[in-house]
Design a protein around this nucleic acid. Sequence first.
DNA 1: CCTGAACTTGATCACTCGATCAACTTCAAC
DNA 2: GTTGAAGTTGATCGAGTGATCAAGTTCAGG
Lengths: 194, 194
Amino acid sequence: MPNIARYNREDVIHKAMLLFWQKGFGATSTRDLQQAVDMRPGSIYAAFGSKEDLYAEALKHYASCMSGILDERLAEHASGLDGLHSFFERVLFEPVLGEAGQVCMLIKTLTELTEAHAELRAQAIASLSTMEHLFTDIIRSAQVAGEVCADDDPQRVARSLQVQLIGMRSYYQSTGDQGAVRHLLDDAFSRIRV
Amino acid sequence: MPNIARYNREDVIHKAMLLFWQKGFGATSTRDLQQAVDMRPGSIYAAFGSKEDLYAEALKHYASCMSGILDERLAEHASGLDGLHSFFERVLFEPVLGEAGQVCMLIKTLTELTEAHAELRAQAIASLSTMEHLFTDIIRSAQVAGEVCADDDPQRVARSLQVQLIGMRSYYQSTGDQGAVRHLLDDAFSRIRV
DNA sequence: CCTGAACTTGATCACTCGATCAACTTCAAC
DNA sequence: GTTGAAGTTGATCGAGTGATCAAGTTCAGG
């Protein structure tokens, strides 16, 4: 089997993710993608099948990045709750692209797409669910460690945090008011600490 | 001045809003609009100028509807906090269109559009700010009435509620889990009640 | 009746979209 | 060096886009 692809698949997916994340699925044209990843249409379609398939890869990559950042922050803190707090800070205030905070790509996907793209929606929903479970495990451990009130339902606490993160990212992207979001973030965590 | 428009402007704006809200700005074609409001392109452009101008009207109408619902719920409850709670319930669980809850149109606008549509963004941001101020006034009154802890900053409480509403609407639209959102909503209000 | 401005219509414009494909290039295997 | 499959290229496809406009329709004022 001669000749290997001239492009780096992971690099291409990463660049496509950044563009899709920024502009959304519909507003990103295949021409935009061609320029961003420096590939011609034939190569892109040979490698990924369709615009939708490439978006699916980008979405998978996004979810994987988020999990990676969470793991990283958990490893940096002895306390799971501190690690989670640090993850929220990272996601809100140290954006991967652009200046202002970006809305979660999973939420953006679900907000933009209808049932005409049911597979992409299902994929985004599954990733959101995975994140919620990760949060729930962290809260449960924090209860064992005595950081969170043991009477609270860990799933409800985790869900509330996820909803607040979603809201804060939207709010921050809209207003750009970092001070306000800082308060919102600190309040959210101080409420669940014992 | 002979001959008056055959269409009802408010009705047309309302129908356009429903379509724009459901599909988003970019995914709504002028043909879709023509069918939805039963007008031909020339009439629409004569009456509204452009797709963007019509969206602006739809956005204004949306914000006006939301304010109207809030006023309505406040009038129905002696307690401002109860009225606000009722408003949240209405917005989350009694959607204007479709079955599942819809994401806030203001947030959807800000999530979808880039600085290429700066005016629409600015309009959405202004409407969000107006809602936050309305919430803040309600919280302030609730503090006077002894329903909310007087030590809390009313703006921060209002902002937190708004962020949680944004998050809950996104979460509900994604998961469809009404029970979970009910808990989130009740928790959000029970946290600020004295 | 007419007149004529307001309004409506549907064909049409220039353009962009996602996707395709025949022609071309590359290079491991022999 | 030759082969041939993998990979690449850019022109191109048909469909759909937002917007325009000449022609047609409507109806209050005279």
